[in-house]
């Protein structure tokens, strides 16, 4: 129900979030971490290993990189943002030395 006070608050641009809304938001976030069973240490380890693999192919900005678990609707997603500085030029590995009939 829209009340006089709500109306006045909106008129003067003063909309305060209720403490139950704050509680809901905080709980949602903390439960994502709880349910994913992943401690910050493990997440850090994952990040380090990701860097290890990625730097074989790309030059990345390790400081600007972020890896975190995020919740969308009812599922948890691993969201990584990795700024790429440049792509390393690499000679592709020859997978097989046996003649295959198809030239590589």
């Amino acid at each position: 129900m829209s009340s006089l006070l709500d109306f006045l608050n909106r008129l003067f641009g003063r909309v305060e979030k209720s403490s139950s809304d704050i509680a809901k938001k905080r709980l949602r976030l903390v439960l994502v971490q709880d349910r994913s069973n992943m401690s910050p240490e493990v997440l850090e380890e994952l990040k380090e290993e990701l860097i290890g693999v990625l730097t074989r192919y790309l030059e990345i900005d390790e400081v600007g990189m972020s890896v975190e678990l995020d919740k969308s609707d009812d599922s948890v997603a691993l969201v990584a943002s990795i700024p790429v500085k440049s792509v390393k030029v690499r000679v592709p590995k020859i997978r097989s030395l046996e003649p295959t009939g198809v030239s590589e």
Binding site: S18, S19, S20, D21, A23, K24, L27, R28
Partner: peptide, 17 residues
């Protein structure tokens, strides 16, 4: 709850799934 200072039952079931 009516003042917006306590989670409602729906909020609780929402959060717990």
């Amino acid at each position: 709850v009516q003042r917006g200072d306590m989670l409602d039952v729906n909020d609780m079931t929402d959060i717990l799934g």
